[in-house]
Amino acid sequence: MNRTTHVLLRGLAEARLALLASLRSFQEMFATVMFVAGFTVGLSFMRGGTVDGTGVDSATASLPGVLGLSVVFVGVVATAMMLATEREDGTLLRAKALPDGMAVYLIGKVVYAAALVLATVLLLVVPGLFLFDGLAAGLATGWPQLLWVLLLGMVASIPAGAVLGALFDNPRLVNAVGMVPVFGITMVSGVFFPITALPGWIQTVAQVFPVYWIGLGLRSALLPDSMLSAEIGESWRHLETAGVLGAWAVAGMVLAPWLLRRMARRVSGANVEKARQKAMQRV
């Protein structure tokens, strides 16, 4: 077995074990279930209503936006938090002490994050198939589109999360500095109401970030063309979707390895010890 194969296999094993560990963690499971259940219940309240002049169920029409939000929240925020936390608690230091440990760790985290995104999407879509009218029909024809948008969405968000996690030393800072913009951007990205209802300059800002485009791509996959009247330019803009998400993916994949290497270089026992002392003081 050559070294690349070894590292890849260990990375997959790391992801599998980390997922098993998460399944064992009441805290993590509780957070995921609340996140998913909250949105599913929220969407259920919209059931029965239809989007004006289209006959499309309101809940079904909103689901793609929620999926887009989930991809970005899990891909960016959860990844960033995970990196910042595990750097502080000594997980990364352990990886650094092992041969090929950092490479295995990072592959493991990317696979773990991707699995987490997919699990969240499945937990939202599968109940939706039974609860929301028209979703099954949309999925029947739109699944290839759904797959590529999801995949590109993950490739755009997970490196962005890694960059954010590598930049901030302090998990609480990631929470404060990372969450607020992501939340703000999400608010204006057409998740909770059509983007065309917002002022022009806000529309422009929203279109810089992946949330809007993942939502748009997923709407094009799951909703009929009669919904186009609520979109900018009354078009699904596939090319632009691929372009913006692709640009984020490329930027992330150029920046992330460099920042992660820098971060890995700075991991030391003294830093972990400092964080531990601080945490003790807080307690």
Binding site: A21, D89, G90, T91, L93
Partner: peptide, 8 residues
């Protein structure tokens, strides 16, 4: 290493 709360 002095473990703390990693891999809990």
């Amino acid at each position: 290493l002095q473990s703390w709360r990693d891999h809990g």
